[in-house]
């Protein structure tokens, strides 16, 4: 059996009187793209910060590739690259130098880090900014620098805390493409985001965290199928009483010749509905489907928006 990239079990953390985590259980397979979603204060950042050694846990198991994050901190931290939510400020050194410093902290000499630094500067469009100080960069450039810094030691696990917060749509799409590419190349990615669309598009599995606990996990498609509500709308003429019996197993409403079916998966039942209507002499003028989004699932589960 493969050792999971991240394994968290019964993780607890309190800040004075506030319970931030109340028994988080989370497993991320090697090579998986995992999204952690939750409203503000749900425990996303605390979980990430415990994994990377920024916050001390109260109790629980926290392992990276089967190794404890405290006892084997050199191994576990070497496996992780993290792009923090907060943008850093540095008054003293140019961007390129900061990347070399970062590689150095991970035990990589400047000589060995050079090809990687050059590759990242090129790939993330920072080549022209290599001698710039961070204060001279735009918000989008700083986000790219954050990502370059997280990747400079070529970690197996990439943790991204709100990586596209505050950047324009074009750059967001560029970053999404790059994250997909990294994932295809085998990186395990743990993402927190308040753009649910981001998680829906990128993640193979999402965990919804609320009040310090993971309350639901699954692929975006499975979660929306299981917990969301989908519908089929059919505009017809020729409704008759026989159809009442034919649709006795369906949940539907009829108003002004417009039928609305509430279903789990519209694609699964649409053909049967159309067939029943046709067999009973109905004229079908239009058919449309509607599906819940992950956001609807999130709202149903947590009772609040993600922001």
């Amino acid at each position: 059996m493969n050792v999971p990239a991240v394994h968290i079990s019964g993780l607890h953390k309190s800040y004075e009187d506030t319970k931030a985590l109340c028994g988080v259980d989370l497993t991320i397979k090697d090579g998986q793209f995992y999204g952690l979603l939750g409203p503000n204060g749900a425990g996303k950042t605390t979980t990430i910060h415990i994994l990377t050694g920024l916050v001390l846990k109260n109790e629980g198991i926290t392992e990276i590739y089967g190794k404890d994050i405290v006892k084997d901190f050199r191994f576990t931290r070497s496996q992780i690259g993290i792009a923090h939510q907060e943008l850093p400020i540095d008054w003293f050194f140019p961007l390129e130098k900061l990347l070399y410093f970062h590689a150095g902290y991970y035990g990589i000499t400047q000589k060995k880090a050079k090809p990687r630094v050059e590759e990242l500067l090129e790939r993330l469009g920072l080549k022209d900014k290599r001698t710039s100080r961070l204060r001279q960069l735009s918000g989008g450039m700083k986000r790219r620098y954050q990502l370059a810094k997280a990747l400079v030691h070529d970690p197996k696990i990439l943790i991204l805390d709100e990586p596209t917060a505050g950047i324009d749509v074009e750059l967001r799409h560029e970053l999404w493409d790059y994250l997909r590419e990294l994932h295809q190349n085998g990186k395990t990615i743990l993402l927190t985001t308040h753009y649910i669309e981001e998680a829906e598009l990128l993640c193979e599995k999402v965990g919804i965290i609320d009040k310090g606990k993971i309350i639901k996990e699954g692929s975006p498609a499975d979660l929306t199928r299981e917990l969301g509500k989908a519908g089929i709308n059919v505009h017809i003429t020729g409704w008759n009483d026989e159809l009442k019996n034919a649709f006795s197993d369906y949940s539907y409403t009829l108003e002004d010749n417009r039928l609305h079916f509430t279903v789990r998966d519209p694609e699964e039942v649409m053909a049967s509905i159309i067939q029943i209507l046709s067999n009973h002499g109905c004229q079908i003028h239009s058919v449309s489907t509607e599906k819940s989004s992950l956001e609807d699932v999130f709202l149903n589960l947590t009772g609040k928006g993600i922001n």
Binding site: G53, R77, I82, H84, P88, D90, H102, Y105, Y106, K149
Partner: peptide, 9 residues
């Protein structure tokens, strides 16, 4: 800037 060095090995 401290997280950069605290998360390093």
């Amino acid at each position: 800037q401290l997280p950069d060095i605290l998360t390093a090995p």
